[in-house]
């Protein structure tokens, strides 16, 4: 080998970042700027384009379908996160009992749907939620004489989507809570129980504050992911439409439809920017909140 001194050749760090930086610049930074240009255009596919100025944003604001998509997406994200978090925490608490046997089985069982991927969950949901013949209605009818024709895929599309998401992600989030609880366990709880605090008191005053940062992080991640939901409703609805009264239409689904079914990349980019601004706003809000907590 050759005799290097302590000093590093100046090009070395650039060599290490180069592969990332080059592809990143080309396939993320450039499209990001291009997306701003696109918001001022109307296109038919990437080949035909026409300058329309601020028309895309003006049209979006008066587009009832877009607002339905926004409403659905917000409803979906808030409801699924609001149900998911306590459920995941509850499961994690149950699984964190020191005397529990078969923990790895339970953990694997509950976590398993997250492995499947939303494409496959969407495809499965399209069959499982069918009225009369679907697995869910059949099972519920057999167990509780539930309405066998309960219209999951029309009137109750949103609850069906939320249930499918719960099935998929509760176990995933539980893993985070469980890891956090195990950290708490060692450091704090022992001292607290020696002080003679009750179970509930201990949970409220020791465990909960200690896992708060993780809860915040998991909530943010789930919220951001839910606001971008696409595959699940898209495939659940057999990809033909957005469901009756557009009940299954989400923002990203609308972006996809306008951009890649209709072929208007400009309109799609404008929708993308509105979504991006919302997500950036949420992230900033989260940072503010977590910073306030620390100080």
């Amino acid at each position: 080998m050759n005799r290097h001194r302590k000093a590093v050749a100046p090009w070395v760090p650039y060599l290490f970042v180069a592969p990332f930086l080059i592809t990143f610049a080309l396939f993320t930074v450039y499209p990001l700027f291009q997306s701003i240009v696109l918001t001022t255009q109307q296109t038919i596919g990437p080949g035909f384009e026409r300058y329309v100025g601020a028309d895309n944003f003006r049209n979006i604001l008066s587009d009832p379908k877009f607002w339905i998509a926004v409403k659905n997406t917000l409803l979906f994200a808030s409801a699924s996160v609001a149900i998911q978090m306590p459920l995941a925490l509850g499961l994690a608490l149950l699984m964190n009992q020191p005397w529990l046997r078969g923990r790895s089985f339970y953990r694997l069982a509950v976590f398993s749907p997250a492995l499947v991927g939303s494409v496959f969950v969407g495809i499965m949901s399209a069959i499982v939620f069918q009225a009369r013949t679907g697995m869910l209605n059949r099972s519920l009818h057999a167990l509780f004489n539930f309405n066998p024709d309960f219209p999951w895929l029309s009137t109750y599309l949103m609850p069906a989507m939320i249930i499918a998401t719960l099935w998929m992600w509760t176990g995933f989030n539980m893993i985070y809570f469980l890891a956090a609880l195990q950290n708490v366990e060692k450091e704090l709880v022992d001292s607290a129980s020696i002080d003679g605090a009750g179970t509930w008191q201990r949970f409220l005053h020791v465990t909960l504050p200690a896992i708060r940062p993780v809860a915040g992080y998991v909530t943010l991640i789930s919220l951001i992911a839910s606001l971008q939901v696409f595959e699940l409703p898209y495939l659940m609805l057999s990809r033909l439409n957005s469901g009756p009264e557009n009940r299954g239409l989400t923002v990203v689904m609308y972006l996809y439809q306008t951009g890649f079914n209709v072929g208007d990349l400009g309109y799609a980019s404008a929708i993308g920017w509105i979504l991006a601004l919302l997500l950036i706003f949420l992230s900033i809000l989260y940072r503010r909140m977590s910073r306030d907590e620390r100080t």
Binding site: F48, R50, V52, D55, K65, Y267
Partner: peptide, 11 residues
């Protein structure tokens, strides 16, 4: 609603 979409189609 449909008319809005039609009007949007500048092309």
């Amino acid at each position: 609603n449909v008319q809005l979409a039609v009007d949007r189609g500048t092309f």
